[in-house]
Amino acid sequence: MGAPLLSVEALTMRFGGLIAVDALSFEARAGEITAVIGPNGAGKTTVFNCITGFYRPSEGVLRLTHGDAANFLLTSMPGHQITRRGKVARTFQNIRLFAGMTVLENLLVAQHNYLMPNVINGLLAVFGLGGHGRAERIAIEKAKLWMHATGLTARADDPAGSLPYGDQRRLEIARAMCTDPELLCLDEPAAGLNPRESDELSNLLVRIRDGRDVAGRSSILLIEHDMGVVMRISDHVVVLDHGRKISDGTPAEIRADPKVIAAYLGEGDEDEVAA
């Protein structure tokens, strides 16, 4: 069992009178895949948006501890710093790629902070100063590794918007990984994938967790509706319903929890879970 990477403490998010997330506490540990599941409207994406700085939580603490013991309070960091210094990367439920830019360009934009540490450096590059050429070569090499890991090498020069859906999903993960995250937050990465593609995705996520055959490793926080994927790859599952945590444990424990079955799994997906 790894050290806690992200600890969510009494996170509450209110939108006017609506309580989307209610005093939620859980931990995501380093080197693990933590899945957050729950019926539609349970507040999963809201939790994600709080973690990645798109929402400022009404109450609660989000603490991130890197492997080198560097500590970050995500609740008091501006959005882009959460990725830059906190090393939290995310993907989106509805894919957000730079559709008019090529696969390679998408992966280079993700390495922006490496390529251009500050504006002065970015402007000096116009005159060929600041060692930009070397940084760009290294960035392209890294992009190549991730394209290879996600099977997109052949599409490197194609605009992202012209890729098939499954490729776009994988590209979004590759792009997030190009930011060198410690924690990769995936919002329904298997949505809309066929069974074969889901299998490939599960495989990719496990490889990212273990740092096997890929260019980097990261712990993963996952929102997913595809129970097949969740049960197969998760080390730890958190179940939400109506903004509250109703269960927390290993996939086997979750599967046996009557509260979970009542709230969520009891509604027609039993076969899939049992399988």
């Binding site: 990645t52 700085g53 798109f54 959005g79 882009h80 710093q81 959460i82 990725t83 830059r84 990367a89 995310r90 989106f92 957000r96 790629l97 730079f98 559709a99 008019g100 830019m101 360009e105 280079l108 934009v109 993700a110 922006h112 902070n113 390529l115 251009m116 504006v119 970015g122 402007l123 590059a125 116009v126 930009h132 760009e136 792009r175 997030a176 930011t179």
Partner: peptide
């Protein structure tokens, strides 16, 4: 020249999707 540099690429990315830029740690 800027178009081929990180700054120009970040501008184009910003045009394409500002939210994704933020999620990649770009200071919008």
């Amino acid at each position: 020249r800027l178009r081929r540099l990180p700054l120009g690429r970040a501008w184009e990315a910003l045009r394409e999707d500002e939210i994704a830029c933020r999620a990649l740690g770009i200071d919008v």
